[in-house]
Design a protein around this nucleic acid. Sequence first.
RNA 1: UCAGUCGGCCGGACGGCCGCUCCGGCGAUCACCGAAAGGUGGCUGGAGAGGAAAGUCCGGGCUCCAUCGACAUACGGUGCCGGAUAACGUCCGGCGGGGGCAACCCCAGGGAAAGUGCCACAGAGAACGAACCGCUUCCCCAUCCGAAAGGAAGGGGCAGCAAGGGUGAAAAGGUGCGGUAAGAGCGCACCGCGGGUCCGGCAACGGAUCCGGCAUGGCAAACCACACCGGGAGCAAGACCGAAUAGGGACGGCUACGCGGGCAGCUCGCUGAAAGGCGAUAACGCCGCGGGAGCGAUGUCGGGCUCUCGCCGUCCGGGUAGGUUGCUCGAGGCAAUGUGCAAACAUUGCCCCAGAGGAAUGGCCGUCACGUACCAUUCGCGAAAGCGGGUGGUGCCCUACAGAACCCGGCUUACAGGCCGGCUGAUGUC
Length: 124
Amino acid sequence: MDRLRQRADFLAVANGARVNSAAFVVQSRRREDLGPIRIGFTVTRKNGTATERNRIRRRLRELVKRLDVISMRPHHDYVLVGRRAALDRDFAAMLDDLRSALHRLERQGPGSTETARRQPKKPD
RNA sequence: UCAGUCGGCCGGACGGCCGCUCCGGCGAUCACCGAAAGGUGGCUGGAGAGGAAAGUCCGGGCUCCAUCGACAUACGGUGCCGGAUAACGUCCGGCGGGGGCAACCCCAGGGAAAGUGCCACAGAGAACGAACCGCUUCCCCAUCCGAAAGGAAGGGGCAGCAAGGGUGAAAAGGUGCGGUAAGAGCGCACCGCGGGUCCGGCAACGGAUCCGGCAUGGCAAACCACACCGGGAGCAAGACCGAAUAGGGACGGCUACGCGGGCAGCUCGCUGAAAGGCGAUAACGCCGCGGGAGCGAUGUCGGGCUCUCGCCGUCCGGGUAGGUUGCUCGAGGCAAUGUGCAAACAUUGCCCCAGAGGAAUGGCCGUCACGUACCAUUCGCGAAAGCGGGUGGUGCCCUACAGAACCCGGCUUACAGGCCGGCUGAUGUC
C-alpha cells in the first residue's frame, strides 16, 4: 500500500465516487494500471489549526493501518477527507464507520461508474 | 505568616502492542514503478518539535537580480547619552520626567523666537495678547441724612485696571509682602523660566554663582526642517538532471535575404609538380551603420550588455511538468577560568543535538503522579460555628498555548499547572 503524493492524483480521485461519514469523507477511483492500492489524506484549513489538522490526519492514518486489506479493492486510489469530528470521536466507532463506508462504496461502485462521474459535478 | 515585586526553570513520568521519517552498518545485486532523471522494497543499531516551533514586526547570514559604480531625487525607517553586538527599532548601564510607603514600574524622552497648519464644545477672549460680570479716580444727573463741611446708596459719561468671578484640557509665570484711586514683575523675597561664567562628568546632565523682571502656549504618533540608516527580491532564492507541446541553433532542400562595406577563412574557376599565385563571387562568417525589443522605483552621468531582423525534413542545446540538490557544524551548545557594575567578550576542555516535502516525530491501552470536586473516616485547635492537616474511595481533567519547513539574533502575542531564588512592606514569636 502506497501513499498518494501528486496533486494530479488527488484531483483525479476527487472526480470519483464518494461516501460521507461522521468524521470523514471517502473518495475512490479505479486506476488503469496494475499498481498497488494507494491512499491519500486531505485535511483543509477550515478544520482547525496546524496542530489539530495534524492530529486528524494521524488518526485517519491509524484507521487505515488497522483496517484489514481485504476491505479495499486492488488497483484503486482512495482519499480520506478529514472532518473536525475526527478529533475526538471514539476510535472504535470511527473504525466501524470506515468499514461501512467502504462497503457502501463497493455496492455503489461496479456498474455505476457513470453516476459516480456525474456526482461530483453537483457541488460545482 | 500574609501581601507585593523582580528574575530564572519545568511544562507530565514509566511500561506494553502496532507504526512513521532520517542516519550508520550488513545483505540482495535482485524485484517493482517510471519514457528518462530518479524512486521504492529486507534485517539491525542509533536519533527524532517548541518556549514560544506561532505572528512574519525588525536586524543579519546565504542566493539571485546580464556588470552594477557614483551622485541625486523620491520613498521608508530611526531619534536623551554611553556601551554591547555581525546588525538592530534589541540588550545593558546611566541621565531626565511621572507613579508607588518601599522593592520597583512606566515614558514616541531630539527641533515649536525656519516656515505652513490645527486647537472641537463652552467662553468676552485660543495667539498681530482679550474685557462679559467686575474693581477704581474724575465729571454730570437726581434722591435721602445733615445748619454746614461732608456722608450713603442709584443712573449716565470720559478714562484707568486685570486682582476676584465665570468658561475650558489649556487663560499669558506661581505664592507672600509692599505698593496703589483700583491694580499690575510696578518693587522685593522664595520657587520657576531664559542667558552667561565656573566646577564635576567621555556624554546626556547635575551643582554653584551672577545677570535679565521675564508677553512670545499646546500639537512634530500634522506637514516639515535637521542628523543618521536602507539598492531590489526571496529557499516557491538558486544549482544540476530532465518527458510531451510550442519556440531556438546546426545540416540538407526550397530560391528566401534591413542596408552598406571591403576581405578569401569556408566556396568556385584558371594556373602550377607542390608551396603558392591570379581572378570571380559573397547568400555563411567578419566589420560598420540602422531599425525594433529588453535591461535598478526614478532621473542624470559613466561603462556597457543581451536578443532580433525567411520557410519545410534530420540532429543538437535552453526550458516547463517531474526528479535530485540547496539541507543542516552553526555569529552551535555545555562546563570551567579570566575581564567587566552589567549586556557581553576572551581562552581552554568536552559534545554533535530533527531534517519532512500532500509534509515524519504518532495511534491505542495500562499503571502512577499532579490538580480539582464530592463522600467516608480520623487528628489538632475551639464553648460552638468552623478552620487546618492525614488516610481511603469515586468522578472529572486524563492535560494549557500550540507542530520545525533555509539558518541565526531579537521583538510581540498565546499559555492549565508547578518549582526555585533575590528584594520590599506589614504583622507575630524568641
